[in-house]
Structures are given as structure tokens and as C-alpha cells.
């Protein structure tokens, strides 16, 4: 059995990728299952999806804990999640990144395939939806499925839901990424620490499940503590403000749904806190003097 775990963000299409991969395996006469896992988070938040492929019927229904291949749709996830957790010996990793495989530190030295799927997606699909592009890289890196059956699967999956044109472009994205994939070996230097979480004992929980402002070893909790949650990894683009052009009309500050744009009245200035920018682009779209430009984040 070949098991794949997808790490993506809501909206990038990890679920569709897992399904398309399963379909490709079925086209080749194998058995396959695909299913997602996500919490209550929204678009941009980390999600998981799984695919199992086998020549026999598959009875295993659990999440994939020891994958043969890990697919990472967004390299910003590497900073916060131990993507190689449970990877089988001789397994491989496929990453959407602009870096070379040799420059990527996964904590272990492992066969790594890299493709700049975001650029492929922006070129061909005009949107940073990287699922089909990364599947092209997967086909190249693992050889588990042929590119032809993958293209056929994408056409079927996407054609059914989104129409023929979209399906055609998505299969082109997969083919393009297949050609651009670079295969190498990752670095294994960094020590991966699991994120500290505050898990109170039941005696510590206040009556009625209410939560008051507090500080634990994992950081702030309670009212206003969401600032602990840095969301910059969600962004594909981020705003750059031209101070010369800016007239301080404050519309961007008013419209920003995140609180990325911070106003400092004493200095009569605005500051951009990229830790919280999800890259929606409302500020750039609404700026009356075009002082804000969106540029690729993590360029």
C-alpha cells in the first residue's frame, strides 16, 4: 500500500488533490481512497488530506500516520508543522517552494522534490491554487502514477465540478509542474520542537467554562490573546505602502479585517504588521491614490 499525506491550507485544494490522485490510481486499475481532515478553521488555515493506493481492496480507514510520501502545498507550513512526522524509511517529500531541495531543512535528510507550484498556478490558473501543479511534481518524484493518468483524472474531477476549460488548464498546470520539478535531498539540521499548547487540568478551568485573561508557558490565553496566533503564513501576497503617495486617509486602516495596519496617532503614521497579514488585498484595491501595491510574500 502506498500512503500519501497532504499538508495544505484551506483554499489551496489539498482535498481535491487527494481525490484527483486517488482517481488517477483508479484509472490505472488500482484501488484508492481519499479523505480530508480539518478543524473549525477557515480559508488559509492548515488542513490535512490523505490518499491510499493499493492493488488490493483497502480496508484501513484511519488517518495516514506513516506516509510513503508527504506533499506540502505551502512551504510556510514547514516552519510550524513537522511535516515529515512518521515518514517511512525510503519515503519522499514533495514541496511547493522556490528553494532548491538542498536548501530545505526538514529535520531529516530525505529524498525531496521541489517545484514552484505557486508560480505555475499564478501563470496558468491566475490564482494561487497549487493543488494540480503539485500533483505533477508528485507524479515525477514518486512514479507511483503516470502523468497521463493524472491528467485524465484531473480532467474528470475538475471537469465535473468546474467545467471543461478549468479542467484543461489544471491538467496543463500539472504537466508544467511535472517538467519543472527538481529532485534532490533535503538538509537534516534543525531540531523540530512541537508547539507548546496550554492544556489545563479540569481543576484549573473556571466555573461555567469561562476564560479570563492570563499568561501560561505557552503564551497568552483568554480575551485578546489571539495575537499569539501569527497568520502571516496564510498570505501569498502582501501589501507595500508608498509613504510618498500616502495621504493618510486611513481607509486601509479602517477596511483591514485583520488589524495588520496599525495606526499610531501620536506619530500620525501607519505601520504594517505582517505577522497578521493574510494577503487579502483589500487595502490595495481600495486605496484612493494607489499607494499600496501587492507583492509576493516570502519572495
Amino acid at each position: 500500500m502506498f500512503e500519501v499525506r497532504f499538508h495544505g491550507r484551506g483554499g489551496q485544494g489539498a482535498v481535491m488533490a487527494a481525490e484527483a490522485l486517488a482517481e488517477a490510481a483508479v484509472i490505472e486499475g488500482n484501488y484508492a481512497v481519499a479523505f480530508p481532515f480539518f478543524g473549525a478553521e477557515r480559508r488559509g488555515a492548515p488542513v490535512l488530506a490523505f490518499t491510499r493506493i493499493d492493488s488490493k481492496k483497502i480496508y484501513s480507514k484511519t488517518q495516514v500516520y506513516s506516509p510513503d510520501c508527504v506533499v506540502v502545498l505551502d512551504d510556510s507550513l514547514l516552519d510550524t508543522i513537522d511535516v515529515v512526522a512518521g515518514l517511512k524509511p525510503g519515503g519522499s517529500v514533495v514541496i511547493n517552494s522556490r528553494d532548491k531541495p538542498e536548501d530545505i531543512d526538514l529535520g531529516i535528510s530525505v529524498k525531496t522534490a521541489v517545484v514552484d507550484a505557486t508560480s505555475v498556478a499564478l501563470e496558468i490558473l491566475k490564482a494561487p491554487i497549487t493543488n494540480t501543479a503539485i500533483l505533477g511534481a508528485f507524479a515525477r518524484a514518486t512514479g507511483v502514477i503516470k502523468l497521463e493518468s493524472l491528467e485524465e483524472a484531473i480532467k474528470r474531477r475538475f471537469g465535473e465540478k468546474l467545467g471543461e476549460k478549468v479542467a484543461e488548464r489544471n491538467s496543463l498546470a500539472a504537466r508544467t509542474a511535472y517538467g519543472r520539478t527538481v529532485i534532490g535531498t533535503s538538509k537534516g539540521i534543525k531540531k523540530l520542537e512541537s508547539k507548546k499548547q496550554w492544556l489545563p487540568k479540569y481543576q484549573e478551568l473556571p466555573a461555567g467554562g469561562s476564560l479570563i485573561e492570563g499568561k501560561t508557558e505557552a503564551g497568552l490565553i483568554g480575551p485578546g490573546s489571539f495575537i499569539e496566533n501569527k497568520v502571516s503564513g496564510w498570505a501569498t501576497f502582501r501589501p507595500l505602502r508608498d509613504r510618498e503617495k500616502c495621504t493618510m486617509c486611513l481607509l486601509c486602516w479602517f477596511y483591514c479585517p485583520e488589524g495588520t495596519i496599525v495606526r499610531i496617532s501620536d506619530r500620525g503614521d501607519l505601520m504594517t504588521n505582517y505577522d497578521y497579514c493574510k494577503g487579502c488585498g483589500v487595502c490595495a484595491n481600495e486605496c484612493p491614490v494607489d499607494a499600496i501595491k501587492m507583492v509576493r510574500a516570502r519572495a
Binding site: G11, R43, W253, G259
Partner: peptide
């Protein structure tokens, strides 16, 4: 807009979709 207070009573870091 200018007279609104600087402070955020609904802080950053929440998990709404981009552009919500």
C-alpha cells in the same frame, strides 16, 4: 474615521478567511 480610537478591541490573529 480619523476620530476613531487606535486600539483594537477585536485583536489581530483571528482565523477569519482573508478579506472577511
Amino acid at each position: 474615521i480619523k476620530e476613531l480610537p487606535d486600539e483594537n478591541l477585536f485583536t489581530a490573529g483571528h482565523t477569519a478567511c482573508p478579506g472577511c
